[in-house]
Design a protein around this nucleic acid. Structure first.
Lengths: 243, 243
DNA sequence: GGGGAGAGATGCCGC
DNA sequence: GCGGCATTTCTCCCC
């Protein structure tokens, strides 16, 4: 354990990437407070100070600290203590490590950013470029006009020149989405002094209660799917090269 | 690389916990699609099939797969390929590994569950037990009556016997919280045929636009903080034993 | 399995 | 820094 301690102390000071598999307890205090009894976990400390504690199951860390956290290792009674403190948000994690099974210390470097397709933004861009997806005669406002109301996904006029506010959801539309649409429509009505503004919820599908709310509020639903540039990409490797 | 391959292949088949630090590219296809160019990352495969890909910065994995994902390693042109497939949700991740810096294979076991204090539920329980936090004379409904409207955080009568719906937020109250409160109040009005039902948003603080909405809708704000059993616990170690 | 809502949400972009 | 909002949100509870 003493050997682990000295190596980890150096690694932490050098902002290396540290991963440990161990048996430990975890105490957290900050926005909320928590305790986790002894068990096997994977602990990761990133070069930016991020701390992640993972149990053997599930996507989310069971405890964590944001970037900018400082980490101090300490040896005590054959146990290794890790005290993590984030000054900016006044949060604390104390880890008591009883046994280290394995550890990994690395210098890693990565400046790449992910390219993602199929977001809500992609969906509103698609509608903007293909307004017939909403209905014949629908004309989105020009970019400049639109930007004044940046919070609205798509904004335009129908064939009768009535204003239409469109809220996009990449997945199922729920009551929250209807609330949001309603809030935007009311905001536009108030700011422009209009009596009639149409509201449209564009998403692949919609929950029954959301549909009921939509109808009661006089709004409409359009089934629209978020765009994908390559469905099951490995069937058409050529397109990957373009990515 | 061949040595890494054979060890990883065995480890994956035995549902061990695997962590790799490496230089790789990542392609994802599923609900959305993404590509991440070559860089250094930490890859973790958990015993339950969860896959996490971490860059050197930030709390969240840059790519991931949920539990139940199957993982196949493959050796090709001096590179190691990891093909991950989740049948249940029809999602894919392909990782092309150019170089492995380090790896860690472990048998880990953990059945402990986290104990957490300070949630919104704790907050509504606190108001239920200390109704004066809202105002003098406020009386929450009994548990049975309340349970009929389980989606309302706190529900009771004021000193004039008017119904009061309370929505709690453990952090800052925003426009969405006001929408939610409004939806509940309208639902109660409709179901009980009442004309007047008070709505109260209980949270530590509130955004300006949320406060404006609240006022326009005739609702009220009460500043309430979520409970903590021990602020900055390490100043009072005795209380930790009670946890 | 779907609906509804919380989360120690996180992350991004705007002002 | 706060505000507003999306997220491959995830997770939990309840029907």
């Amino acid at each position: 354990m003493r050997e682990h301690f000295s190596q980890l102390e150096v690694a932490a000071n050098q902002n290396k990437n540290i991963v440990i598999s161990c048996s430990c307890t975890v105490r957290y205090s900050g926005r909320a407070e928590s305790f986790l009894a002894q068990g096997d976990r994977i602990i990761m400390i990133k070069p930016d100070g991020t701390l992640l504690i993972h149990q053997p199951k599930g996507s989310n860390p069971i405890n964590y600290m944001k970037d900018g956290t400082t980490h101090d290792f300490e040896l005590k009674d054959k146990k290794l203590l890790l005290r993590s403190y984030n000054k900016a948000v006044k949060e604390f994690i104390d880890i008591e490590i009883f046994r280290i099974y394995n550890k990994m210390i690395d210098n890693i470097s990565d400046n790449e950013k992910i390219q993602l397709v199929g977001s809500e933004k992609d969906m509103s861009d698609m509608i903007y470029n293909e307004p017939h997806l909403i209905e014949p005669g629908f004309k989105p406002l020009n970019r400049e006009e639109h930007t004044k109301f940046g919070f609205i996904d798509v904004f335009g006029h129908d064939k009768n020149n009535t204003l239409v506010v469109i809220e996009c959801k990449r997945y199922i539309g729920d009551p929250k989405a209807v609330d949001q649409l309603n809030r935007y429509v009311e905001k536009i009505k108030a700011s422009k002094g209009l009596e009639k503004v149409r509201g449209v919820l564009a998403c692949p599908r919609i929950t029954p209660s959301a549909h009921e709310m939509l109808t009661n509020m006089g709004f409409e639903f359009r089934s629209v799917n978020p765009p994908k540039y390559f469905e099951r990409y490995d069937k058409d490797q050529k397109r990957l090269g373009e990515f």
